[in-house]
Each structure stands twice: as C-alpha cells, then as structure tokens.
Simulated scan of single mutants.
Amino acid sequence: MTINFDASELERVLHNAANHMTHTAPLMEDISRALLSETMMNFQLGGRPAWAGLSPLTIARRRGGAGAILQDTGELKRSIKATHTNDTATIGTNLVYAPTHQFGAKMGQYGHTAKSPIPWGNIPARPFIPIDKNGDISYDGFLVVREVVNGYLAGSFG
C-alpha cells in the first residue's frame, strides 16, 4: 500500500495564514471601520443604553431645540475619524469638549478642556465611542472587534 501526500495545498494555506499575521493593516482597517460604525450607530440610536435626556436649559440654548442628543450642530459626529496602521486601529476626535460628553462632568469642575470650570449644571456621561470610563474598549466594542478578527482569521486559512 502506498499513500501519497501532496503538501502544496497545505503549504499555500499556511503561507496565506502567515502572510495575514504579518501584514495586519487590512485587519486594523476593518477594526477601525467597525468601531466607527458602532459609534455612528450610537448617534443614530441616541446611545446604547439610551443617553440621558437634555435639560430644559440645554434645550433652550440649542439651535435645533430638543433635537437629537449630541447633534445640535453635527460637529462632534462629523469630527470622529477612523485611522489605522499595521499595528493599531484607532477611532477618535480632536474636539476638546468630546471627553466631557463621553465621560460627563460636574458643575464647577474643570472639564476635559482644562481651560475653565464647567459653568453650567452637571453634564451626564453620554458615551458615543465604545469605550468605558477607564478608556478601555467596552464589552459591545470588544464583541465587534472579536467578530472582525474571527472573520479575518477564517479568511486567512481559505
């Protein structure tokens, strides 16, 4: 009895998997896009769980009245960008007031701008980016990243 084994298909699959593990920029791009999509979904749904409602003072000061929370001008939502390198996936905004909305602030405390104390009432946290109060990825964000990584790994063996 003779058994012949052609290793060429196995070599191709292993080479493809190794290439996927070395050149991870496509994976990082997919992760950053998925996290950006999760962030945009938070704006669309008004948070998950739902963000605290607006105070009467805030409604009176807004250009659009009650409108969608965190979307009076749309500047915050438009400022959020996704970037990546071969080793990192990043989403974020450079607006100085974004952390105040993400994490909340108390009246009189210095906001995340460090320029002046919050002059109005308390601002509840309205997390729009899928991170927790410590700046770590949230559980929902983790699930999205895990799904992207699993898809990437499954494709690397095809």
Rank of each mutant, 00 (worst) to 15 (best):
A25Q: 15
L27I: 09
F128M: 03
L70V: 05
V96W: 02
S55L: 05
I80S: 03
V96E: 13
L45R: 14
E147M: 10
V145M: 13
R61P: 10
G155D: 11
P99M: 01
Y97C: 01
G46S: 02
G53W: 04
D72C: 13
S138A: 01
L76Y: 05
A7P: 14
E75S: 07
S138K: 00
V13S: 12
G64C: 12
R62I: 02
T2S: 13
A25W: 09
D30C: 13
A52G: 06
L57K: 13
M28E: 05
G74C: 05
G65P: 01
D136I: 09
I118L: 11
F142W: 14
A98M: 00
G158C: 11
G141C: 02
S37D: 14
W120M: 12
A98P: 04
G155E: 07
F142D: 12
G65L: 05
G158D: 12
G65H: 00
S138Y: 02
R78E: 00
G121C: 05
A25S: 14
M41I: 13
G151M: 11
L57D: 10
I137K: 07
V96T: 11
G104F: 07
F157G: 04
M40E: 01
P127V: 03
L57H: 15
K133P: 06
V144T: 07
T2Q: 15
A89D: 03
P127F: 02
L27G: 01
Q44I: 12
L54Q: 10
A17D: 07
G53Y: 09
P124M: 13
E75G: 10
N134F: 10
N16E: 09
A68R: 14
T2P: 10
R62H: 03
G158R: 13
Q109V: 11
T2E: 13
D6P: 02
N16M: 07
G111R: 00
T85C: 04
R63M: 14
G155R: 15
D136H: 11
Q71T: 04
L54K: 14
L76S: 05
G111M: 00
G64R: 15
W120F: 14
H15M: 13
A17W: 05
E9W: 08
W51L: 01
G46H: 02
